[in-house]
Amino acid sequence: MTASHATATTHVDTSPDSGYGTTLRISHRKLLMWAFLASDCMFFGTLIANFITYFTRNEGTSPFTFLDIPYTSVSAFVLLMSSLTMVIALACIQRGDEIGMRIWLVATALLGSVFLGGQYFEFTEFYHKGMQLTGVNLFSSAFFTLTGTHGLHVTVGVIWLLSLVVVSFTKGIKSSESLNVEIAGLYWHFVDVVWIIIFAAVYLVGNTMTAPPLRGG
């Protein structure tokens, strides 16, 4: 830990968040988040690999009939937009616009919640139509485990973003503390990126592979 120097004439940003005093000139916490995201790649990679292994075991619940592409495209779009609002929130606080940050963080959390609501709705639909976590087939179990884990990650993200808003109202967040928002943003974008992969691998590919053959070309 280095002591921070409070000299008014320096051009050097010596706050701990800027990476001052570190070997790579990067904040420790930012580096930590990236290392964590690398490991989360393996975590979701394993879940996706498992899904790919088991998705052909779908007797009685053909993915083609269950996976609704238009519906999921909308929810994928919602999550993508939440990444945009997230990055705008960060840009606001980096400029010192704390009110703007609050608005855009709430927007991000809202979009995330819409996504989660959509997932919940989709899952209950599936449940009623006979696709369940247990007792049906491995495609169902793998599907719910993968998307459920992703949903949990999104939930944690929404809680994190809302707690940043609460902190902003109670203690305030200065532009020099924007790293806190940036790191939450990295996590949020990662969760979005994982959905990009899941959307393609599970919904698009899975659906295509199990589509019934077309008649007449």
């Binding site: 790579l24 930012k30 990236w34 690398a38 989360d40 790649c41 990679g45 394993t46």
Partner: peptide, 20 residues
Amino acid sequence: DPPVMTWLFVGGLVIATATI
């Protein structure tokens, strides 16, 4: 950003993809 973060992330990604 400095490349080390890209290396960390892409490293994890490559190993994950290879494992899948």
